[in-house]
Amino acid sequence: MRNAYLKTLYKLAKEDKNVLSLISDNGLIVYDDFKNDFPEQLLNFGMSENNMVMAGCGLASCGKIPFIYTISAFLAFRSFEFIRVDACVNNLNVKIVGIGSGVSYGYLGPTHHSTEDIGVLRVLPNLTIFSPSTPLMAQKVTEQAYKIKGPVYIRLGTNNEKEFYSENYNDNIKKLNNIIDGKDFYIISTGSIAYDAFKACQKLNENGYNIGFIDANCLKPFDSETLINLSKNCKNFIIIEEHNIISGLSSIVSDVIAENGLNCKVYKIGLNDVFAKGYGNHNQVKKQNGLDYDNIYLKIKNILENK
């Protein structure tokens, strides 16, 4: 996802000199091309995320389009007030790009995990939130973020996420993507964990189940309409997220269901009000916390069998 983001940013910066890349001493080597070809458009603020976010907003007040990039935990949590006031109260055209969604930084532990970022940021008026699931989606949301005149948060995975979209994909990135049609159950997922959820769904269907899979790349504004339409025939939604189940995708879906009186059951698979435990690579930490492919498969199967 990161490479897809950087490639897209490079293209945008080439086409529009107002596109700036703001970094906070994060991204050695990966920014080399950008630095060589557009040195004036790359601003390294050092380890001062708050200053970077506010300076980015000052730049945006002059018509620049800053893509403010660093580890998402340091943006969503450390810089929350500045995202709130300088970006969102002012409604300025800044793009906040957090790398390391969920437990991507598995070796580094909870200081570097972003497992509550959706929760804290979705309460901010004016902010659009994208949580791409694959490299192609990272490209699409970055292009879309550039087109939106206002603050946007993009939540990126760090590792080599696999693709499950066709390269001809040209749908509205703000809508829920119905990847696999289902009947009585639908899985809804977002971010890099969506690939595991997608594979689990495929496997379960090979084993005789008939469940659907929805990928959510835009969490705010959330595509309630598609969910409401699906609920006419499907009454069970299994949410899979690499995030606290409080305030994340599970909560977003639950809000829509409750607010519209949809009479559906929501099953939540994510971090249950805990910080992720353990250290290791991304997959090992997901496994330790019951969120790798095998666990997802078994948890969904368990839900289906006990229904």
């Binding site: 601003l43 506010m54 000052g58 002059c62 620049k64």
Partner: peptide, 9 residues
């Protein structure tokens, strides 16, 4: 910090 953004712009 906001001023710095304007100064750079």
């Amino acid at each position: 910090s906001f001023s710095i953004g304007i100064a750079i712009a």
